[in-house]
C-alpha cells in the first residue's frame, strides 16, 4: 500500500482542530475583500469552496510587509537595543499551493545564503506545509513551464488532492509522515482513490495553458541585456508600481527605516521594489532611473541572475503579477519575446 490516506471534506474542520492542538494553523482567509494565509478561527472551512489562491502569497507569513527588527532606547548610560520577543510556536500552513511552497524554497535559499536572515528563518523554522493541489488553475498560471505542476509536492510536507467528496492525502517528508501517523480520522486510500487522484492531477496539468519557454532563458537574457530597444518596448506600459514585486511569492527586496515616537525607537524592515526609481537612487546618480532598466532588472533577476547564483529560476509561475497588474503587463509575454540568440 502506498501509505496514502483519505479524508472526507466534511471532516476537514475536525482534522484542523486536531492539528490545532499542536500547531498554530494558517488557512486561506478573507481580509476585507482580499485574501491571505491567516490564523484559522477554529471553525470556518468555507475556504475549501472559494479558494483558488490567495492574493498575498504565503511569503507574507514569513516575510511580512513590515516587521520590527529591534527597538532602541536611550538613557543616562547611552543606547540600549532590545529584540522583540518572538513567540516560538510550531505552525502549519494548510492548503498552500505548490507554486507558493516552491516560492518559499526559493526564499529559503536567498535568506540562508551567506549571512542567515534571522527574522525570516526563525518564522520559517518549525513550519509544516500542507499542500493542496490546484484543480482549477487560473488562466494566468504557468507553473508547468517552470518544471512544476498544479500538484507538485516537492516542497510540501503533506500533499492534499481534491478528488470530489474527499481529499487524497500523500505524505511527502518525514515530518509529514509523522504527522499523518498520529492523525486520527483518516482512512487508508484504495487503488480506486489513487486512480481518481492521478486522473485529477492529469486533468489539472492540462488546464495550465499559459506556456513560456525557459530553455536557455538566462543565456538569451544575457545576450539581450544591452538591447535597449527590446527593453523599452517591453516596459512601455509599465507604470512602475510595486504590485507585481510585492505580491510575487519570490521577491524579497526590502527597505530598513527607523521610527522614533516619544523617545521609543524602532527599526523596521519593509518590502521594497526594484520597480521604484528611488530604490537605487544615490546622491550623485541613479543607475536605474529609466523605466526600461528597472523592468530589465526585475526580469533578469528572476530569470538570469538568480539562476546564475542559485541554479533555479526565481519564478514559480503563480501568475499573480499578471493577474493583479493594473495595466496587464505580462511577464510571460516579456519572456516569450526575448530575442533568440543569433
Amino acid at each position: 500500500m502506498s501509505g496514502s490516506k483519505i479524508i472526507n471534506k466534511k471532516d476537514i474542520g475536525k482534522l484542523l482542530s486536531q492539528w490545532n492542538e499542536e500547531f498554530v494553523i494558517l488557512v486561506p482567509s478573507k481580509e476585507g475583500d482580499t485574501t491571505k494565509m491567516a490564523k484559522w478561527d477554529g471553525k470556518d472551512t468555507g475556504f475549501i469552496d472559494w479558494y483558488r489562491n490567495t492574493v498575498q502569497a504565503s511569503k507574507t507569513n514569513f516575510f511580512p510587509p513590515m516587521e520590527e527588527m529591534f527597538s532602541f532606547q536611550k538613557d543616562k548610560e547611552g543606547y540600549h537595543i532590545g529584540l522583540a520577543s518572538s513567540d516560538k510556536h510550531k505552525q502549519l500552513i494548510f492548503a498552500i499551493r505548490p507554486c507558493d511552497a516552491n516560492a518559499l524554497a526559493i526564499l529559503d535559499v536567498a535568506f540562508k545564503d551567506g549571512y542567515e536572515d534571522p527574522y525570516y528563518l526563525s518564522r520559517r523554522k518549525d513550519t509544516l506545509l500542507i499542500g493542496l493541489g490546484c484543480i482549477n488553475p487560473y488562466d494566468s498560471c504557468f507553473c508547468t513551464s517552470l518544471g512544476s505542476s498544479p500538484f507538485d509536492s516537492t516542497n510540501v510536507d503533506i500533499m492534499f488532492t481534491d478528488i470530489g467528496e474527499e481529499f487524497f492525502i500523500e505524505e511527502v517528508t518525514e515530518a509529514g509522515k509523522e504527522l499523518v501517523a498520529k492523525t486520527e480520522g483518516l482512512r487508508e486510500a484504495s487503488k480506486v482513490d489513487e486512480a481518481k487522484a492521478s486522473k485529477v492531477k492529469e486533468a489539472s496539468y492540462n488546464k495550465v495553458t499559459r506556456k513560456i519557454d525557459t530553455r536557455d532563458i538566462d543565456k538569451k537574457l544575457l545576450a539581450c541585456f544591452e538591447n535597449k530597444d527590446y527593453w523599452e518596448k517591453v516596459s512601455a506600459k509599465c507604470i512602475s508600481c510595486g504590485i507585481c514585486t510585492f505580491l510575487c511569492p519570490t521577491c524579497y527586496c526590502f527597505d530598513i527605516n527607523d521610527e522614533l515616537v516619544r523617545k521609543q525607537g524602532t527599526r523596521f524592515r519593509s518590502w521594497d521594489s526594484c520597480a521604484f526609481p528611488i530604490y537605487t537612487e544615490m546622491p550623485v546618480e541613479n543607475p536605474r532611473l529609466e523605466k526600461w532598466r528597472r523592468v530589465r532588472q526585475k526580469v533578469c533577476h528572476k530569470f538570469e541572475f538568480f539562476p546564475m547564483n542559485f541554479g533555479v529560476v526565481a519564478c514559480t509561475g503563480c501568475g499573480r503579477c499578471i493577474r493583479l497588474c493594473g495595466v496587464n503587463w505580462d511577464i510571460t509575454q516579456a519572456i516569450e519575446s526575448v530575442p533568440a540568440i543569433i
Binding site: E31, G32, T34, P65, I239, S240, C241, G242, I243, F246, L247, S270, W271, S273, F276, G326, V327
Partner: peptide, 16 residues
C-alpha cells in the same frame, strides 16, 4: 484604520 492596515504601499494608486 482597518482599510489602511491592509495597504502594502505598492503605490499603484499613485502611479496609475
Amino acid at each position: 484604520k482597518e482599510e489602511f492596515s491592509r495597504c502594502i504601499r505598492c503605490y499603484a494608486c499613485r502611479n496609475v
